[in-house]
Design a protein around this nucleic acid. Structure first.
Lengths: 218, 218
DNA sequence: TGTACATCAGTGAACGCGCGTTCACTGATGTAC
DNA sequence: TGTACATCAGTGAACGCGCGTTCACTGATGTAC
């Protein structure tokens, strides 16, 4: 019995993996997590899945197809991180306060994800989408919105609260640029050495700046 | 005579290159310009210099040494672009106006360089310096200041003009994050598709935001 | 001014590496009868 | 319930590629006499 089970397990590990597509994707995500998009390799992914290199071609058309799947997963993880920050917002019936807090939550989730998962963050933005991008569910978090859409939803609250007259074209670009730039400079750039406390301070100042820019005189 | 000259030229091209270090660096810069840091390769650089691959080791200890030289050159080119924007500022004796215009010039030079030379821009920030970084002259422009120092100088003018009480720690990080983020999103990210006009509009809005954040109530 | 020689910049050949991708195959699984 | 068979997921071997880097070499250049 025991040996039978072992035999079965051994068989499964050689032939008929079970869910190789998923196993390869998981391995590839780990590779991206540790080493960024460069580290996503068919050979290493198959190695980790305990399978011969060309077995991957049953499930992915090419190395690039696998990488794109990882990118979608990374964007989805970013969306989940942002949603996590939004979810912990205290309830309030002041729509202006909610709007401001939502925007800060989006920015905080964004930068914190970049700090905690720099490899995935880099992968998410490595071979990027077109402007509008495909709003496919693979890139979305639990709410079904991708990171850009989550930012847009936060800005909508500004309009709803009367803090913004109209959704200025490019309002999201301002917010996004500021937050994305900070994230990039922290993980890849000259702000790498910043301590956690200083990082939080800079982030707060940055969010102040964005908030003032959005709700101030325009 | 003519043939003599040809013979001499031919000799020089086989043995004794002349200034192979410089030729390799120039070739490598072209590679980075066209394909980013990934494209900087000893073999291709030597190929372009008309020389055998290992000849590079007379002048650079490794592929990485060459890449670092390219990075310094890319940062210097960025500094020159910023200096170009600063140089075309109209003369004024209003220090506040000068301060604001200087900051905008720095931001404009930064983003325009990223748009015009995306490969060099990506290379400049690919394997980045420590926080303070070595302020070595290789990375500087004509004024002897590197990009970060040029930004700092612009902020100093804010203090001098009385627009900023103190040089807030992290004030440069706000400005830098905003500008760097926009540059990144335009060349690598979801804002790639933006037309030149829209790009300028977003940049102006972004610079407004930064300016207000710096000179506004702190 | 002419010759002997040391220097050292570039040559030529080769190494080992990991990669993506292709081919013909094999044998476990699930289905049709 | 049992058997024949088609499917197709994974195997095994191999390819060509470009890369960084090493070695022993060679011969043009500039210097010392």
């Amino acid at each position: 019995m025991m040996s039978q089970k072992h035999a079965t397990t051994a068989k499964r590990s050689t032939y008929r993996h079970g869910d190789l597509a998923r196993a390869l994707l998981d391995a590839a995500i780990d590779l991206a997590r540790a080493g960024g998009p460069q580290a996503v390799t068919l050979r290493e992914a198959t190695r980790r899945a305990g399978v011969v290199p060309n077995a991957a071609y049953r499930h992915y058309a090419s190395r690039n197809a696998l990488l794109q799947a990882v990118r979608s997963a990374a964007l989805a993880a970013l969306a989940v991180a942002i949603e996590g920050q939004l979810a912990r917002l205290p309830a309030t019936d002041d729509p202006a306060a909610l709007a401001r807090a939502s925007l800060r939550a989006v920015g905080t989730g964004y930068v914190e994800f970049a700090c905690v998962e720099p490899g995935l963050f880099r992968t998410a933005f490595s071979v990027p989408d077109q402007l509008q991008g495909a709003a496919v569910p693979e890139k979305a978090g639990n709410t079904g919105l991708n990171p850009f859409q989550l930012l847009g939803a936060a800005l909508d609250r500004f309009v709803d609260a009367g803090l913004l007259q109209r959704r200025r074209l490019g309002a999201e670009y301002l917010a996004w640029s500021a937050v994305h730039g900070l994230a990039t400079l922290i993980i890849d750039g000259p702000l790498r050495g910043l301590g956690s406390n200083q990082r939080k301070l800079v982030l707060q100042n940055l969010l102040d700046m964005v908030e003032r820019a959005l709700s101030g005189p325009a």
